[in-house]
């Protein structure tokens, strides 16, 4: 399965990202965007899966320090 993920960072300067990945994102995972580490706080399925693709949204917050 390929996960197409829409990432939104709350309260951060990052504009958000859409990318494909092989691992399903999970709440608590940490991801790095342009040198900034963020933590996933919410994962939603925003479109039903089709063929080999799953369509997800992940809301993230900036990790302090």
């Amino acid at each position: 399965m390929i996960y197409q993920v829409s990432y939104v960072v709350i309260d951060g300067g990052h504009p958000g990202t859409i990318m494909n990945q092989e691992e399903r994102p999970e709440v608590g995972d940490r991801v790095e965007f342009a040198g900034e580490t963020v933590e996933i706080v919410e994962v939603l399925e925003i479109i039903p899966p089709r063929n080999d693709f799953a369509y997800l949204h992940a809301t993230c917050k900036v990790v302090e320090g």
Partner: peptide
Amino acid sequence: GTVEVALGKPTAPGPTPILHLGKGQ
């Protein structure tokens, strides 16, 4: 790689980033 999508705004001197797109997009 990754690309940055940016929009020009009448009130800003240059394009403002609105989204990054990664592999497969």
